[in-house]
């Protein structure tokens, strides 16, 4: 799906044109202070078709999906959904900046983990993510930091060392296959 405001509307189930730029989304955003482009500005970029800037900013990768912006929007624009959509479009269009990389790798590792096990194997997740992320971005501290916590976690019984697996893993595999059949986003 090429970037267009209709594409964003569809992905986010919303009407971006409804936004009248009051800024309430940005005012309430818990990470707004760290964003290079504010949520209301992102919506404006989508409105005016400037997707390159919208996809290439750090802000969309800082979003914590807390839904505060959508919940308070006086025009019921699903702002959090717009950021979700921008992230999807960025991946699809290969607009991957440093901020994006870690998150994308994490999410891919996460989904692969689910695809294999049906449920999350946290130890595997941490391990694979840290090593993969390190290969792509040297600023990610390798295993060390969390491994400081790991012994404590194990003593507290907070990890299944082996992790759990669902019985019908074949079905999980087929579900993934069907969902990815029409492209990485699940649709044409």
């Amino acid at each position: 799906m090429r970037p267009s405001s209709e594409a964003v509307d569809m992905l986010a189930h919303t009407h971006v044109t409804d936004c009248y730029q009051c800024g309430k989304c940005s005012a309430g955003c818990p990470v707004g202070e760290r964003m290079d482009v504010l949520p209301n500005q992102l919506v404006r970029l989508v409105q005016s078709g400037n997707f390159r800037r919208a996809m290439d900013c750090e802000a969309i990768w800082l979003c914590v999906s807390c839904q505060t912006c959508s919940a308070r929007c006086p025009k019921s624009v699903n702002c959090a959904g717009v950021l979700d959509a921008l992230r999807q479009l960025a991946v699809e269009n290969n607009v991957i900046n440093a901020a994006a990389r870690r998150t994308i790798v994490f999410q891919q590792v996460f989904l692969n983990n689910i695809r294999r096990n049906g449920r999350l194997n946290e130890l595997e997740l941490v391990g694979v993510f840290k090593s993969k992320a390190f290969l792509k971005d040297a600023s990610v501290p390798l295993l060390f930091k969390d491994s400081l916590l790991a012994p404590k976690m194990i003593t507290r019984g907070k990890f299944h060392l082996m992790g759990e697996k669902v019985k019908d893993r074949a079905l999980v595999g087929r579900i993934f296959e069907r969902c990815f059949a029409e492209g990485p986003r699940g649709h044409k």
């Binding site: 999807q88 998150t103 999410q107 996460f110 989904l111 990485p184 699940g186």
Partner: peptide, 25 residues
């Protein structure tokens, strides 16, 4: 019985269909 992961943020960030399919299962 034999529940699967809900997909969490990763699913709805990366594949919209999967984000419905996993909970649907």
């Amino acid at each position: 019985d034999d529940w699967v992961c809900c997909g969490a943020t990763a699913a709805h960030s990366l594949n919209a269909k999967l984000a419905t399919a996993l909970p649907a299962r």
